[in-house]
Design a protein around this nucleic acid. Structure first.
Lengths: 242, 242
DNA sequence: GGGACGTTTCGGCGGGCGCCGAAGTGTCCC
DNA sequence: GGGACACTTCGGCGCCCGCCGAAACGTCCC
């Protein structure tokens, strides 16, 4: 029997495998995890982040762009890449959530700490996730700012609340203003979409939250605790972390 | 520089890549797509389905079980495997939804037809998805059988409605009785969880829907159209497909 | 123009891994 | 017991592909 015949593994096969193969490499996976912060990175930044030569990074980025997981944007001698969309971010998140690191009974103490920090509060693409993200969403529903009956649509009161905080939501965006996004720790929808992104950006700008090191985990600052208590009635102990 | 140092690709790397690598092979992907019907398959069935030797299938199944994507159950000389849970099914679905086959502007006419059939109605793990699945869920919300305010919880009227149809939902199950599941065609939650599974099973048993060939696509039968119109008020033309 | 720098292309190397067939183990049933 | 059958283990083959460094290309800025 001809060998070529049996080697359909890498060649034809279901298209599903082609997408998975893009994320099956440690370096490309590291790129996507880094890009999960929603920002655009240059090729060199990603190369240094993952610890590979620039030429290697170029090849990986080509593959990811060709596979429609990333979009690129050239500016002068720089090449910026970002995740191609929320679906890609969700895919990366759900892959990570099935990894051994996030399975019950974690191995090491440091891994456990990392896991808990991420479960508490983190960015998911461009909005807040984790226990804090879910708590914020629940509080907004409880105060009538979001309408759970219409896919977490923004109510009139919600729009006023945002305006009151000085949070503007770009109206021209194609994305639905709010969109539920399942959380891997809570398995419950939380606030994504344009509103979620705007809220998250404001929380960073106003110093409510800060990034923990260079990870996706975030910490709620004392000012953030105060603000979230005043504006949403969230209890201080929930936001204290741990 | 030592070569071992730079070869962290396959070895260490982010755990995300390890999960993706399990689905990055055409044969393993074919296994998971087949298992997406929610049933348990034997190793030999899967081997024949994917066109590989039994020994090859064994190795793949070991990898998938070790990676917690599949669970196994030995019965006599048979080894049954099934997807490890709804999260895995969702992962496989979202990988497939990002594959070129499901991207806008499909290539061939046959691929287009397949795509449309799947978009219309299909099984997703153990419940209904596609336009029909979403329509059923919407109708149930509209009739007060599901409560969108509590994560698509079953209302009292909903429980009575199910009982009236003779649909029993196993109470001992750990899974939440209803659970939203995002649809790749509609990008909207539809009815999953124990209730979704029971409803889907009943629809098959009562002859409301039938499988199209050996794919995951399903067709609504004339009897099914009648039943869905009577019990949920769904219009006949929506269910006619195409 | 010329140097600095971000990015790309290309060759070459080497390990990982998916494939098979043959032989071995366990289960079922006559 | 003995044969059929589902599954597993093992050895070997060969391709895929990720890695690098060197050199080329573009852009920017002095």
């Amino acid at each position: 029997m001809d060998r070529m015949d049996t080697r359909r593994t890498r060649g034809a096969g279901p298209d599903l495998a082609a997408v998975a193969r893009l994320l099956a490499d440690g370096t490309r996976a590291a790129f996507c995890l880094a890009l999960l912060d929603g920002r655009a990175w240059t090729a060199t930044e990603l190369a240094r982040h993952a610890g590979v030569a620039p030429s290697t990074a170029t090849e990986h980025l080509h593959a990811l762009v060709r596979g429609h997981l990333l979009t690129e944007e050239r500016q002068g001698r720089h090449r910026y890449v970002r995740l191609a969309g929320p679906q890609v971010a969700e895919l990366v998140e759900s892959l990570a959530s099935l990894a051994p690191e996030h399975r019950p009974a974690p191995r090491s103490l440091s891994a456990d700490g990392r896991r808990r920090a991420l479960a508490h509060a983190r960015t998911c693409y461009d909005h807040l996730a984790g226990a804090v993200g879910v708590a914020v969403t629940d509080a907004m529903i409880g105060r009538g700012l979001l309408d759970p009956a219409h896919g977490l649509g923004l109510t009139g009161a919600g729009a006023a609340w945002l305006a009151d905080l000085g949070i503007g939501v770009p109206p021209g965006t194609r994305r639905p203003s709010v969109r539920p996004c399942l959380d891997w720790t809570e398995r419950r929808p939380h606030l994504a979409g344009a509103v979620g992104a705007a809220l998250c950006r404001h929380a960073f700008d106003a110093g409510w939250i800060t990034r923990v090191g260079s990870t996706r985990a975030v910490a709620v600052t004392p000012a953030g605790r105060q603000a979230l208590h005043r504006h949403l009635g969230l209890p201080g102990d929930l936001l204290a972390g741990r």
